[in-house]
Simulated assay, not measured.
Amino acid sequence: MKKSALTLLAAMTLVPMLSYASCDSVKADIQQKIIKNGVAETAFTLDVVPNDQADQQGGLVVGHCENDQQKIVYKRTGE
């Protein structure tokens, strides 16, 4: 019982920290996944923009960071 209580407490402590992930690390993870799916690194861009500007970027929102304050927008460059 004590072990499960400690596990629950540790999980509750770590979850909020995960939601504040650095935009640079989230962007890098997404970039690597796109490249692993066969898209050339020069064929797309990823831009970090405030939530209220994400729809104006003309791309696809593929992630978020900084406690959902920023969005990561994917755009093909046509190369």
Rank of each mutant, 00 (worst) to 15 (best):
A40F: 10
V73N: 00
I34E: 08
G63N: 06
Q31M: 11
Q31T: 11
A40N: 14
L46E: 09
G59W: 05
A43E: 03
I72G: 01
Q56P: 09
V49L: 02
C23K: 05
N67C: 13
S25E: 06
Y74R: 01
L60S: 12
S25V: 07
P50L: 11
F44R: 02
I72T: 02
V26N: 03
V39S: 10
E66Q: 02
V62S: 07
N51K: 11
Q56I: 12
I30R: 01
V48D: 04
V48I: 11
P50V: 11
D52Q: 09
D55C: 07
I72R: 05
N51V: 10
H64F: 07
V61F: 01
D47C: 04
P50E: 13
D68M: 06
I30N: 00
H64A: 09
A40C: 10
A28K: 15
A54G: 08
K36M: 15
D24S: 00
Q70I: 00
D55S: 13
Q31V: 06
D29I: 10
S25Y: 02
G59P: 04
A40K: 15
V62I: 12
L46K: 09
V26W: 06
Q32Y: 12
D55W: 08
A40Q: 14
Q32K: 15
Q70Y: 01
Q32L: 15
N67T: 14
I34L: 13
L46D: 05
G38N: 14
E41C: 03
L60F: 10
G58R: 07
C23M: 02
Q70L: 07
L60W: 09
G59K: 01
L60V: 14
S25P: 00
V26A: 08
K36F: 13
D29N: 14
K27L: 13
Q31F: 05
E66T: 00
Q32N: 14
Q69N: 07
I35W: 14
Y74I: 01
L60C: 06
V48H: 04
A43K: 01
A40H: 11
E66M: 02
K71F: 02
G63D: 05
V61H: 00
G58L: 09
V49R: 04
V61L: 03
F44S: 07
N67P: 10
H64I: 03
K27R: 14
E41N: 13
C23R: 01
T42M: 00
Q70H: 06
Y74T: 02
D68I: 05
V61Y: 04
K71M: 05
K36W: 12
E66V: 03
S25W: 06
I72W: 06
K33E: 15
H64P: 03
T42V: 05
T45Y: 00
D55N: 13
D68S: 10
A54V: 04
K33R: 15
Q31G: 11
T45D: 07
E41H: 11
N67Q: 15
Q31S: 15
C23Q: 00
V39Q: 12
L46Q: 09
S25F: 03
Q53F: 09
T42R: 11
N37I: 08
P50Y: 08
A28R: 13
V26S: 04
L46N: 10
